[in-house]
Amino acid sequence: MELISYQDEGQFVSGHVACGGCAEALAMRVILNTVGSDAIGVVSPSCSAVICGGYPMSAVKIPMFHTTLESAAASASGVKRALVAQNKPDTTVLCFAGDGGTYDIGLQALSSAAERNEDILYICFDNEGYMNTGGQKSSSTPLDAVTGSTPAGKTTRKKNLIEILAAHRIPYIATASPSHINDMRAKIEKAKAIRGTKVIIVLIPCLPGWGVADNAAVRTARKAVEAGVFPLLEIEDGVNYRLSVSEKGDSIESYLKEQKRYRHLDADHIARLQAETDFEWRRLQQRVADSPARNP
């Protein structure tokens, strides 16, 4: 095992109320430390809003504005414009939202902010469902996953938000995982230096929602990356694709086995999911190969 030494900047402190073993707290810590103190946060109702802490306590050092579920990108736009009007254009405006607040109810406001290329850093903590309300499906829930509202497994695919965002041609889109924190940190640093709309989707295996063991969140996230289910990528200007982890393993089975939400799947189902994953991986490879930056 390789140990990573991590220099904490004290931007996210103990006393937060994440579930024991939740990787979202780890991701928030890395993100907040990397963003630093010259930042204002906007958070919509989600696990991250709860993790920040209830009034009058806050586990987050920067000021946070808690907004409504569908409004993170719109409220962040308002904060940024107000800072610009007050001659503070360099302050980072950081958004935290869940997948419900991003893929579903918040997509309209996010699309609009992206179309206007608002100068915000939008983080979606993607735990593939409404996990803070007890585990219902969202449009980010993957095919076949069991949730409270898909008891027999979801019959449709996970929404491909990354390509929807890429179609907006915003300067920066990335995916990140709590299993690859150096990669996450590098992406935050890169995004922070770019003016315009930046969106980073962070995979967060939900311990109760996915049926993952308390000590297995990071391992599960790592397996999602390694199996190619959740590729770590960057997209610049909506067209230049780059993979941070450019190889994938042959099988998704080890990833699925970590989770109770896929426990009902038989070999045929697993083979179908494997074929879906392989197909998407090949499409992604093609996008990387076709990127204008590689074909000047």
């Binding site: 809003a49 920040c52 009034y55 806050s58 000021p63 808690h66």
Partner: peptide, 8 residues
């Protein structure tokens, strides 16, 4: 460093 609207 003040926040607004945290659960009360």
């Amino acid at each position: 460093g003040r926040s607004f609207g945290a659960p009360a």
